[in-house]
Design a protein around this nucleic acid. Structure first.
Lengths: 253, 253
DNA sequence: GCAAAAGTGTTCGGGCTACACCCATGG
DNA sequence: CCATGGGTGTAGCCCGAACACTTTTGC
């Protein structure tokens, strides 16, 4: 079979400060190529699939500092293309400041998800790039079978993005939300050292809800350690920089 | 590439009563073929991979009443065989009483996992079949990379089972443990109607720990509904039969 | 009667939520 | 001085763990 591998790359970006006296706002981003598709790579039978994907990413980013995990394998004929029948998708998280490649062929889009009201479960997704905005809706149907429950995601309308791409984005975000509650992936969005507010912003944009700073601080306390460094952001009390506490590493699933 | 799909089939079985006055004990089981391998299937580019696997299982089991979800895709040359370079694994749960095929080519093995003491994280797995017992040890190494953490599972020794098979079993059990806490898969091990004790036993064998009946009952209360039926098991108070409460269906990940 | 499971209720503690409050900073 | 975020403490609530206790059955 014709096998390829693609990646859904997540990152965050600091938005322009709207008020000099406030913190920079973070946005969740995903990377698409010029065809509004996920970066897709060749796969051969000489090397491990994941290793090949990592090598491609290393070339694209100019760094090996990224998080990667297998997301899902898509093998439905309705998504076949001329040169790909089976697609193994990987989820990647990269901090844009780590990217050392100057002529990056990828476009990063701010992603926002809005749950539409109504009987049916429909989400409107907006991808806002520097030069382009892509907007689409996706409907999730719950199909109760004998024993399994299947979730069928259908693209509504006919936007300039493929259904498989939207489904992979959907699946990727669900995985992110699951992982952020159960592992340390949040730190992959940040540099080695960060402020608690930055970390909180990562949680907030992935979970898509505001968190109470005092409680967040207590919850993540065992996962971080204080460094000596201090950041002066703006007209408010400077923050300590923190780093991930390696003692917290666990045998996460 | 040469693509195949295999399945790790989980089920439970009631052991023989050791004491007439006690409940039947349940055991977690996995199915292997006569080569001590996971059932593996052809994949073509005419049909969806999952659909093909389901069709094969339907033939094997004689029923469509089983749970199935994609587990992982293996693409490492070290696991290549003559006719499979990429293997898409599925996790399947079936209740053995639902199997309507009389001459089943699969052997069900009771599986027990023992965490060995020591610095390194080693587990001894025992697969106890009707005519054969397979025993092996698997070591999990935590490899901290830049951002990702990778878990490397290595088969210790040289038992009569392949390393990939042991890793898929390992991955399958981790997935089971994760799913039983967050979805309704436990019910896939049972028939439509069941006693709370049976359900508790399913939780206990998957999580590999004893649960307090009173607390378990309260926890799963919203997930089940009482039926009119009553089961007389042995020399103790009869139990009501319960069924899954469909109102509890959620958009699980 | 007794062992064992079915089923109910109570208590206790940890973790999460909400919120009050003080500190530090630059505009 | 004040808006804003940094950081600490506390009170309430919910959920899970532990356990006591009653009920029902067949041996």
């Amino acid at each position: 079979m014709k096998v390829k591998s693609n990646v859904i790359i997540f990152s965050t970006d600091n938005k322009e400060r709207t008020d000099v006296r406030r913190l920079k706002e973070k946005k969740l981003q995903i990377a698409l190529d010029n065809q509004n598709s996920l970066p897709i790579f060749e796969v051969n039978n000489k090397e491990d699939v994941k290793t090949m994907v990592c090598n491609h990413l290393k070339e694209i980013f100019g760094t090996t500092k990224f998080y990667i995990e297998q997301l899902y394998t898509w093998g439905d004929p309705q998504y076949y293309s001329e040169d790909a029948e089976l697609i193994v998708s990987y989820l990647v998280i990269v901090n844009r400041q780590q990217i050392e490649n100057s002529n990056l062929s990828l476009n990063f889009y701010d992603i926002t998800i809005e749950n539409l009201e109504g009987e049916r479960r429909v989400q409107r997704i907006t991808l806002e790039g520097e030069n382009k905005t892509i907007e689409y809706e996706i409907e999730t149907l719950m199909k109760k079978e004998k024993n399994s429950i299947e979730y069928i995601n259908k693209l509504v309308g006919n936007p300039e993005i493929s259904e498989l791409t939207t489904i992979i984005i959907h699946t990727g975000i669900k995985r992110l939300r699951n992982r952020i509650e159960n592992t340390n992936i949040a730190f992959s969005f940040l540099l080695e050292e960060f402020t608690i507010s930055e970390l909180q912003q990562v949680y907030e944009i992935i979970l898509d809800k505001k968190l109470v700073a005092a409680n967040f601080r207590k919850k993540i306390d065992p996962m971080i350690k204080k460094t000596e460094k201090v950041v002066k952001e703006s007209a408010f009390r400077p923050s300590n920089k923190y780093a991930f506490n390696e003692d917290f590493l666990q045998y996460w699933v």
